[in-house]
Design a protein around this nucleic acid. Structure first.
Lengths: 354, 354
DNA sequence: TCTTTCCCTCAAAGCGCTTTGAAAGCCTTT
DNA sequence: AAAGGCTTTCAAAGCGCTTTGAGGGAAAGA
């Protein structure tokens, strides 16, 4: 098939022993040379580095893990409810994780899991020593995973929080409550009085907090958010459409709708225009924007007013903290980190129709 | 803090030695009991299983890897061009991978990499023994990664193919050429004569083949696809919008547009309606649909005619083949697998306007 | 010249598992 | 009662690396 264009034409994957024989050096010296220990002659180190280049030698990760206790990887559980599909939010987060991992020569290990087997999956990942640290996401109320994680010796960070539990665990979260409270206040100031919420799955912490935020803002004006004005669904275009259609169909039609994701908003907006209504005039909408490159709120036909916070940045930050915790296990554990989402006003919000 | 609700309250992660001391059995026997060897007394095996339950013991994966040579994981490179973001297509594929991995107790290891360092990244993953097998994607023309992969002893599968190379490597691909040829023929039969293509990145194999498919169909009617009628961009909503706007603006406006993804179509459709044109009447559009749950072609205001093929199924199939190759390295290596995309006619296509 | 010091290199142990080859125990069979 | 055949268990080696503690050689000091 022709020779490779590359210098390295080695079928065999070399190991340290072979390399040491090749160089006439002990395995110790080579290991030291590669790991930057000072007690190696500069000449020798150069020889070693050259040989590594030529042979394509890479330390076996499993062996290194066994010897050092460090795997150079962080773990995550990929939630796999059979009805739900690839989640762009998960992907965007992963992208941030990847950015940071790349910079530190970490990789990440993904363990798919059914929602009801997540604890098992974490245990598996951790006690099998596959990862040095891991992150927990898709938190529910009083989530039992947190207690479990704390009982395990491996560092972890929660993405999000868990209502009903003391916040004595490391986390990175967006202040969803505040974001939706402020968004609601903004709409109240525009004169809106009838609200609806197209929310994520009902059991997830972020969904609960978003609802709470709205309710708090409404309460200050003596208003309430009725159950039938709230829907909990998967974050897909189709769900957004369906829920908005339902809202538009209701007896006392809400004039202001909050939406847990731009993906949901996509369908919601479609329903609105199909009903012949004008977004920002007949009905106002604010969506939470996770800064998905795929779908920018400013590119909607009527640019969307949003509460914005970058999921990718969150991924990056979580990887950063995780990797730091692995590098220095004795470092003082910093705990919660609450990010503020920005309310960005665009054209999808306007005065309440009279 | 309260006691855990769970039976397992072990901070320490136990290992085989501790377990053997606990049970008064040798490590050998326990290992055999757990790995299903026949020469273990049924009673003894029960005792072992019970102890494993209670202690939460999991074999250390690194140690097992070292002893057996199998890591129980498959690897993938996550492309990280700084300008590009989380790719929903990558996520959807991953989801299929996950389904299959879960069934076989595999996990997958993701190594993020800049596009120009992918070969390095693969080498790293493979020669460090982090994975038992891996998959290659985002193939380019005459992609050098294939030769490299073949020179390495680790099983791999290519998702897609690489033009200009003999197809003597294992792959799973959709027949993009045929899909777009047939889609074009369908449009030709509707009377369309001026075509445009909103394509993926120009260097990717699938993008090249899709263009070829169109050109083939056009050639049979003595037509050609001009360079300026083709655009190559990232697969985002915003790109789709921009490109369609450009198309609508051109002197001799095309009446039929093919689109490499429903994500691109999303923006494209917006541009069309914003221009006051009616999809399926003033302009016809066919998009390739990777079966993203996020975005269903049948849910567009004007349901989209598509060429469809499930990315998730591809992921599942690739994991299946990879895992099989790991389980039995001597099995006859089956090579290419070419899937056919289905043309599904909906409302976004109609007779060419006269 | 002999000792001390420093620099460089090495042999060996150990990380936690699987697996080979041997041995112990218990029945059958002769 | 001894020999042979099962079944069940075990000790030890080895996977490829890092790391400890020690040793050899050269330069410096006595």
């Amino acid at each position: 098939m022709g020779d490779s264009a590359h210098g390295t034409e080695n079928l065999r994957v070399v190991n340290l022993k072979q390399l040491s024989e090749l160089l006439g050096l002990s395995q110790t010296t080579i290991s030291r040379a590669l790991n930057g220990y000072p007690e190696v002659n500069a000449q020798t180190r150069l020889r070693v580095l050259k040989a590594v280049q030529e042979t394509g030698y890479r330390p076996n990760r499993a062996a290194r893990r066994l010897a050092t206790g460090k795997a150079g990887s962080i773990g995550l559980i990929m939630p796999i409810a059979s009805e739900q599909s690839a989640d762009i939010h998960f992907a965007e987060f992963q992208r941030g994780l990847a950015d940071e991992c790349l910079a530190h020569e970490f990789h990440f290990v993904i363990m798919p899991s059914q929602p009801d087997e997540e604890e098992q999956a974490i245990r598996g990942l951790v006690s099998s020593g596959s990862v040095d640290a891991y992150y927990l996401a898709y938190m529910r109320e009083r989530d039992s995973r947190i207690a479990m994680a704390k009982s395990l010796p491996t560092p972890f960070i929660v993405h999000g929080r868990s209502l009903g539990l003391a916040e004595d665990y490391p986390y990175v979260d967006v202040d969803n409550e505040r974001a939706f409270r402020e968004a609601t206040e903004f709409l109240l100031d525009l004169g809106h009085r009838r609200f609806a919420l197209i929310n994520g799955p009902a059991d997830l912490d972020f969904a609960i907090r978003r609802r709470m935020g709205i309710e708090q803002a409404l309460a200050t004006r003596g208003l309430t958010l009725e159950d039938h004005a709230v829907s909990n669904t998967l974050m897909t275009d189709a769900s957004g459409y369906r829920q908005m259609a339902r809202i538009l169909d209701s007896d006392v039609r809400p004039t202001a709708v909050l939406c847990a994701s731009t993906v949901l908003a996509l369908g919601a907006v479609r329903a609105i225009s199909q009903a012949g209504k004008v977004l920002g005039r007949d009905i106002s909408l604010i969506a939470h924007d996770d800064d998905l490159m795929l779908l920018k709120p400013e590119n909607f036909i009527v640019p969307l007013t949003t509460t914005g916070s970058s999921l990718r940045d969150a991924g990056r930050r979580i990887a950063e903290r995780l990797i730091a915790a692995v590098a220095d296990p004795d470092a003082p554990a910093l705990l919660g980190e609450l990010w503020t989402a920005d309310l960005i006003v665009r054209a999808s919000t306007g005065p309440a129709p009279t």
